[in-house]
């Protein structure tokens, strides 16, 4: 009987000690997800599958007067396989009401050129709402980026 009580006590003691450390391990999945999300956000990574073309538009306010704001629009685009196939592009920026702020820009990048700059003069009162960027290899489907600039 004494032996049984001792064993029982030992089991309770061990269980008590082990229970202290339950749920103490780092939750690896949640931890990783958080880092991945943070990293994707830093890179504005938006591709859900292998993209044939990496592309992005940078919008830079360069100068303004009482009436107008001039923006420099820089499109970067390159084939993801390092190939030299031409890239056709279209891009446009819109105000917060969905109205175009300046004319649609279109063209083609060839010979390994990966950057094009355009100028956009908009009414100073306009608030940038959205940018629409489309790129494709000739004859291919458009890859579309619809980037919102409003919180």
């Amino acid at each position: 009987m004494k032996k049984f009580v001792k064993v029982l006590f030992l089991i309770f003691a061990v269980t008590g000690v082990v229970a202290q450390f339950q749920n103490c391990a780092k939750k690896e999945a949640a931890f990783t997800d958080e880092i991945v999300e943070e990293t994707f956000s830093f890179f504005s990574y938006r591709y859900e599958k292998a993209t044939p073309i990496y592309y992005e538009l940078q919008i830079i306010p360069v100068s303004s007067d009482a009436t107008y704001q001039t923006y420099k629009l820089i499109l970067f685009a390159a084939n993801s396989d390092g190939g030299a196939a031409d890239i056709q592009y279209e891009f446009e920026i819109f105000d917060s009401a969905g109205k175009s702020m300046c004319a649609l820009k279109t063209g083609s990048l060839s010979g390994g050129v990966s950057r094009v700059e355009e100028s956009c003069i908009a009414l100073k009162a306009s608030v940038l709402g959205r940018a629409l960027v489309k790129v494709r290899n000739p004859g291919g489907a458009w890859e579309v980026l619809n980037e919102s600039y409003i919180n």
Partner: peptide, 16 residues
């Protein structure tokens, strides 16, 4: 994948 003149701040620059 982007040309050298594309190595700029805020640009997500791809390499292969």
């Amino acid at each position: 994948l982007f040309q050298n003149d594309s190595l700029r701040t805020f640009v997500t620059m791809p390499f292969r």
